[in-house]
């Protein structure tokens, strides 16, 4: 079971982020513990994707602190030192995107092996073996040599998950990974994520699918207008929310 005394894997302190005059994150405090499956939910424009992307600094922040595994992610460093610092951190933070962002000029296998080989983690042969194992895990052994253009959306997203897993990250970030999929393809991606959750991967999932969040997450964070409104276990936040704002969101969503 979780050791609650241990330092959380991710700790966010009073995080603020503005795009020009528009403040999209208005002081976020959040923790992600090892093995936790945290689902970030909330209406469009609530800042949940932005928050997720600050964790690996695809978005920089205006003020506040992000700690990952004992390191200050958004440390104020000169450009070159910051790049090195982020490269090292990002190896341990896997990310899966809404629009897959598979590399279209590489096969599924090459997509998965690229980073481990470039970064010298594996030899080509090791990386290949590892990639084949990961592709088997996401159910795509027979698609290793396919280019992304010949894969369905669900298959692409599963390759993208395998690509992130190839770095053996300590946490996986999922940014609305099923939003761009045809409804009948959502299930296969969700199953892959559930499988990861069962293996105790630490996961932060931005999602619009409340049912999936209820089934999979161990912790729900509800955001609105750049703030965390309410958080807690799924049973509480999704079934007996304390805040009126949460209730309004849930009603609206279930009414759709």
């Amino acid at each position: 079971m979780q050791d609650t005394k241990r330092e959380p894997l991710i700790r966010i302190r009073n995080l603020r982020k503005s795009f020009g005059p528009l403040e999209v994150l208005k002081g976020i405090d959040m923790e992600v513990r090892e093995g936790q499956i945290l689902a970030l939910i909330g209406p469009s424009g609530s800042g949940k994707s932005t928050l997720l992307r600050t964790i690996n600094q695809l978005e920089d922040v205006t003020s506040g602190e992000i700690w990952f595994d004992g390191t200050l992610v958004n440390a104020d460093l000169p450009h070159r030192a910051r790049e090195k610092h982020l490269n090292a951190l990002r190896r341990n933070i896997g990310m899966v995107f809404q629009h897959f962002n598979l590399f279209p000029h590489m096969t599924a296998l090459e997509n998965v092996t690229m980073a481990p080989v470039l970064l010298g983690l594996h030899t080509k042969a090791q990386a290949r073996e590892n990639a084949l194992r990961l592709l088997a895990k996401v159910g795509l052994s027979d698609r290793a040599d396919y280019y992304p253009s010949r894969l369905s959306g669900g298959q692409k997203q599963r390759v993208a998950i395998a690509r992130a897993l190839a770095m053996e990250p300590k946490v996986m970030l999922f940014d609305e990974v099923t939003s761009a999929l045809d409804p009948e393809l959502v299930g296969e991606v969700n199953r892959t994520m559930k499988q990861l959750a069962e293996e105790n991967m630490t996961m932060v999932i931005v999602t619009h699918e409340l049912k999936f969040a209820a089934d999979t997450a161990s912790h729900i964070v509800f955001m609105a207008d750049g703030r965390i409104v309410e958080e807690g276990p799924p049973d509480q936040v999704l079934r007996n929310p304390l805040q009126a704002r949460t209730r309004a969101f849930l009603q609206q969503d279930f009414a759709e």
């Binding site: 990310m95 629009h99 962002n101 690229m114 690509r163």
Partner: peptide, 30 residues
């Protein structure tokens, strides 16, 4: 080239130059 390509590469921990050389430039050239 869609910035998502560059971001996906950087999110794996590869450097700016590696992301350009392996991901962005080959697609741009094509």
């Amino acid at each position: 080239i869609d910035t998502g390509q560059y971001q996906a590469a950087r999110s794996l921990g590869v450097s700016h130059l590696q992301a350009m050389r392996k991901v962005v430039v080959p697609q741009a050239l094509a």
